[in-house]
Design a protein around this nucleic acid. Structure first.
Lengths: 127, 127
DNA sequence: CTATCGATTAACCATGTGGTTAATTGAGTG
DNA sequence: CACTCAATTAACCACATGGTTAATCGATAG
């Protein structure tokens, strides 16, 4: 299992499934029972149960027992961490870095690399 | 494969691996060859090649051939979409929704549910 | 032409994942 | 007690994933 993985990996993996994302979206509107959560999906109850286990394992939901119902609710904290990680790349998708400057930088760096070679023997070694 | 998956799923799946995230972090500092990208990792070249294929499949990097080198560079756009998706949950991790109000809301809704039952036969059906 | 070097492809392996059906647990009703 | 109902667990299946080693490809140096 991805048990030894770091939290970010577990979070992203949990988010990498449309059913699970839909469940989280549903839960953003308020708590729900397992049955209510699974109802929109053409999928067996055990399948939903497994998805919920994954979400719980990622800390994205919490389950509480109410008689024979399991009430699920959102725990968005891990999303916060994922959001933060992505945030660091904002400047890349927000402009120059991604398409404008790059084009210039590209040929520029290509030349730099070309002159950095020249001695093709023993090219890159950790000293 | 996750080929028929939607873009968000592919993106999150690509991000759900620490090696791949480290590669992206490295690329945020500027383009690099495959060899340079793989050098920090105790991992075979084919393994790195596969990670790069996943990243490319998610549109997170672009590769360009320069003689016998493959130059990789960041394409952060898919991160933007992932970031946007997470953004919708901000209010949940930013306070009341997640821990404060919830506690009150919880018993409150528990009662609502209790009174919503009462007729245990034919409990929840799509009319 | 030959050797080398960066990188990928091929073939293979172990494990994880997403789904199924059938059986099980636990609580509430008659 | 017997039954039903929500949900989970068990056992199984197909296939994706992350890694390996060995072979291959393309470009360059000698």
């Amino acid at each position: 299992m991805a048990n030894t993985d770091d939290l970010l990996s577990i979070t992203f993996a949990a988010l990498a499934d449309p059913t699970r994302r839909a469940i989280l979206t549903r839960l953003a509107r308020g708590e729900a029972t397992v049955g209510e959560l699974g109802e929109p999906f053409d999928m067996s109850a055990p399948a939903i149960s497994k998805h919920l286990r994954v979400l719980e394992g990622a800390g994205l939901i919490a389950r509480e027992v109410d008689a024979r119902w399991r009430i699920c609710r959102l725990r968005a904290k891990p999303m916060h961490d994922a959001h933060d990680w992505l945030e660091a790349y904002r400047r890349h998708w927000e402009g120059n870095l991604d398409r404008l400057v790059e084009f210039v930088e590209r040929t520029h760096r290509a030349e730099a690399r070309k002159s950095a070679r020249g001695a093709p023997r023993a090219p890159r070694k950790k000293p």
